[in-house]
Simulated scan of single mutants.
Amino acid sequence: MTHINWEEPFCGEGNNCFRLGTDTQGNAYIAVAGQEDHPLTDTREALRTLIRDIKAGKADHLL
């Protein structure tokens, strides 16, 4: 089983908390805080791109 190094939870308004994590094989993970056993996974570069796009406002229409 892969060991995931989870960051501290990030919580937005209304207690919407999620966690980011990485493993030694270069994979990145995102999960709802408390549900880390069911993460979404992709490459670190894909996670980096997602975070950049969110910061640039490209996901604002989803809020």
Rank of each mutant, 00 (worst) to 15 (best):
10 F>S: 14
37 D>A: 14
50 L>P: 00
49 T>G: 02
17 C>T: 09
30 I>A: 15
15 N>V: 05
51 I>H: 02
29 Y>C: 05
31 A>S: 15
28 A>Q: 09
54 I>Y: 12
53 D>S: 06
15 N>W: 09
35 Q>D: 06
32 V>C: 04
14 G>I: 05
60 D>C: 02
5 N>G: 02
29 Y>M: 07
57 G>I: 13
27 N>M: 12
31 A>W: 07
49 T>W: 05
23 D>L: 00
17 C>R: 08
45 E>F: 02
10 F>Q: 13
17 C>S: 10
63 L>P: 00
15 N>E: 13
4 I>R: 00
39 P>D: 12
14 G>Q: 12
47 L>A: 15
8 E>G: 03
28 A>S: 15
39 P>E: 09
3 H>A: 06
62 L>Q: 05
59 A>V: 05
4 I>V: 15
27 N>K: 15
22 T>I: 13
32 V>E: 12
6 W>H: 06
1 M>Y: 01
24 T>S: 14
9 P>N: 10
14 G>M: 11
6 W>C: 08
26 G>C: 09
14 G>T: 10
38 H>K: 15
15 N>D: 15
32 V>H: 03
18 F>R: 03
49 T>Q: 14
1 M>V: 05
55 K>C: 07
37 D>V: 03
41 T>G: 01
24 T>E: 14
41 T>I: 06
16 N>K: 11
62 L>W: 15
49 T>A: 10
44 R>D: 08
45 E>P: 02
49 T>E: 09
31 A>F: 06
59 A>N: 11
6 W>T: 10
55 K>M: 11
37 D>L: 05
21 G>N: 08
15 N>C: 06
36 E>G: 09
37 D>G: 01
23 D>A: 02
18 F>H: 13
39 P>N: 10
57 G>T: 11
4 I>N: 00
50 L>Q: 01
10 F>Y: 14
